[in-house]
């Protein structure tokens, strides 16, 4: 009924919001029903639609009986007695106990079987790891040092298993298009698997409340062909030229830092990156920052070491004005990547 409404083009990536996938996760067929996008579809959606029909049946039954009674047996004079005074009817009561019982037992068995199927990981599944931190995702690919943040590539038709790990609080790995969800509990290892059956871009949400930017903890999943997958599209890092380095730095910013740092001077959870570097003549130099280290305020000049320390060990020197805010350490950013980030920061200098 609402399906025609949802064809609007997705909002373009903006600094306030993540770069959302196109709206394919809610793609529907001409009946307004969701289309089949994953191997788990039949079980989950089949049962969903079965229960849906049962619901509609009972809903119509109950509403119909009520409406009919109200119209037919409406009290017209204040002393009108009831048309019947029966207080029970054993066969009827047995029927309406047994029929729902049978129906729910079908639902139970179906649902339980479906969930068992979800726990048997196919032996040819590719093993990924997803690390959730407040409020971003980091994906590790099998036997590959390159990782991607808030963007994920999987191969069509190939079962993908994810080991899930949290560095702080509870999160949940939720791919609506694949009908899978799993809580990510710090201190416990969990896993989830699915087989994508359709090419395209899909939403990956964090479905367990995890604080401030829970709603921005978003990743885009690309389901690609085997050839595209072989190209390792997640390894976009390139610092062969200064321009490429700036672009790589910006994409790191877009994928991991935008939620807390602005580039226009406005205040978010963390200090804006605008003003970290300043123009002095035609030189770009590090600005002076007030920081608190070990309880004492000191002034530092922004340089590679300071930025690196801010990223790997944010607690060591805290920017004045942000003493109570915390930044997730990004220990996996290596020196080359940090240099690219700095190259991007420098483009913000005035």
């Amino acid at each position: 009924m609402f399906t025609t409404l949802i064809q609007d083009p997705p909002a373009a990536a903006t600094p306030q919001g993540p770069d959302y996938a196109t709206g394919i996760a809610t793609e529907t067929d001409k009946w307004g029903q969701l289309t089949k996008l994953a191997s788990t579809f039949d079980d989950v959606d089949g049962l969903f639609y079965f229960t849906y029909v049962v619901c509609i049946f009972f809903f119509v039954l109950i509403t119909g009986a009520l409406l009919y009674s109200v119209v037919r047996y409406r009290r017209k004079t204040y002393d009108q007695p009831a048309a019947s005074n029966v207080t029970h009817n054993t066969p009827l009561e047995v029927i309406w106990t047994v029929i729902p019982l049978l129906i729910v037992m079908v639902m139970f068995a179906w649902g339980f079987k479906g969930s068992l199927d979800m726990t048997y990981v196919p032996s040819d599944a590719r093993q990924y790891k997803a690390t959730a931190s407040q409020w971003n995702w980091l994906f590790h690919y099998p036997n590959d040092p390159a990782k991607s943040r808030n963007e994920l590539w999987v191969e069509i038709g190939k079962p993908a298993e994810f080991l899930l790990e949290s560095t702080d609080v509870l999160h949940a790995f939720f791919l609506p298009s694949q009908r899978v969800k799993r809580d990510i509990v710090p201190g416990r290892y969990q896993s989830v698997w699915f087989t994508p059956t359709e090419l395209g871009e899909f939403h990956l949400f964090c479905a367990e409340y995890c604080g401030l930017d829970h709603s921005k903890m978003y990743a885009k999943m690309h389901v690609v062909t085997a050839e595209e997958y072989a190209d390792r599209p997640w390894d976009t890092f390139d610092d062969s030229t200064p321009e490429a380095a700036i672009k790589s730095g910006e994409s790191i910013y877009q994928s991991a830092c935008y939620s807390c740092h602005s580039v226009d001077g406005s205040k978010l959870t963390g200090p804006s990156w605008k003003g970290l570097f300043e123009k002095s003549g035609d030189q770009i130099v590090g600005a002076k920052r007030e920081v608190i280290a070990g309880g004492a305020t000191q002034t530092v000049t922004v340089d590679f070491d300071y930025i690196k320390e801010s990223i790997h060990d944010p607690e060591a020197k805290k920017a004045v004005g942000y003493e109570n805010a915390n930044m997730t350490p990004f220990k996996d950013l290596n020196d080359r990547q940090i240099k690219a980030v700095i190259a991007y920061m420098k483009t913000l200098a005035q």
Binding site: L47, V104, G111, S115, K181
Partner: peptide, 16 residues
């Protein structure tokens, strides 16, 4: 609520 009680369906619907 009964729909949510079905194990595999709830996995999709939980926290939505």
């Amino acid at each position: 609520g009964v729909i949510l009680g079905a194990l595999n369906v709830d996995i999709h619907l939980h926290d939505t």
